[in-house]
């Protein structure tokens, strides 16, 4: 049945009766009766999300694919370690993040420890005067901002964030997780992740302002 996990650009082809089933119920079906269709539905739901998170941590397409495969093998072999104490999605993202960080450690690929903690857009007097308005891109038409070229620019800007900020930003603002869920996945306190999120957003807003300003010249 896993053979039906196909499709152009990730379009899902699961049987309709499972599409509206909760993750937890699908896992229950897989554990109790080895229902491959249930597993296939989980793959359809999460393959892209797992791959994206793995790439956001490693910034390497080959590693991201290896991690994608590892995570689903873990799901097959160690599903009993999911005890239902957190949401299945949080558990799966935590497995993914752990696998990705293990890859980084194994390959001894560490990014320079760049901190954005002192990153602020205002001057020493606490004013933004002359720093923001000159690069106002908020009134650019959506057609331009949502173009493929613009989305590439946005993706690139996110990928340029230093790792600890990039992963928090990705989970919170791209995947749309709550603070509590991000905290569970990364094992970070909510104040710590909010602090990273704040600096990440300030940095990205500036980056996008530079990009879109240059782009529109």
């Amino acid at each position: 049945m896993i053979g039906t996990v196909t499709g152009q650009r990730g379009k899902e082809t699961s049987p309709p009766d499972l599409v509206n089933t909760t993750d937890e119920k699908l896992i229950e079906l897989f554990i109790s009766s080895k229902d491959e269709r249930a597993f296939e539905e989980i793959v359809n739901r999460y393959a892209d999300k797992i791959y994206r998170l793995a790439f956001k941590i490693t910034r390497d397409y080959y590693s991201a694919e290896e991690i994608l495969q590892e995570v689903f093998l873990t799901l097959i072999n160690k599903i009993d370690t999911f005890r239902g104490e957190s949401k299945f999605s949080s558990w799966l993202y935590r497995v993914t993040a752990n696998a990705a960080y293990m890859h980084l450690r194994a390959q001894k690929k560490y990014e320079n420890d760049v901190s954005l903690e002192d990153y602020v857009p205002y001057d020493e007097n606490g004013t933004l005067m002359g720093r923001i308005k000159a690069k106002d891109w908020s009134d650019k038409p959506d057609k331009a901002l949502l173009s493929e070229e613009a989305m590439e620019i946005i993706e690139k800007a996110v990928n340029e964030l230093p790792e600890p900020y990039r992963v928090v930003f990705h989970l919170r603002d791209v995947e749309g997780f709550s603070n509590q869920e991000v905290s569970e996945v990364l094992g970070l306190s909510v104040p710590a992740l909010k602090s990273r999120l704040h600096r990440a957003r300030l940095y990205l807003r500036d980056k996008l302002s530079d990009y879109f300003y240059e782009w529109s010249k």
């Binding site: 790439f55 994608l68 908020s138 603002d173 995947e175 990205l204």
Partner: peptide, 18 residues
């Protein structure tokens, strides 16, 4: 621009990577 940045980065979720 901060709000717009959040709106645009949220759209990255719709992109397919696999």
């Amino acid at each position: 621009t901060y709000r717009k940045m959040l709106e645009l980065t949220g759209k990255l979720r719709e992109r397919t990577f696999v």
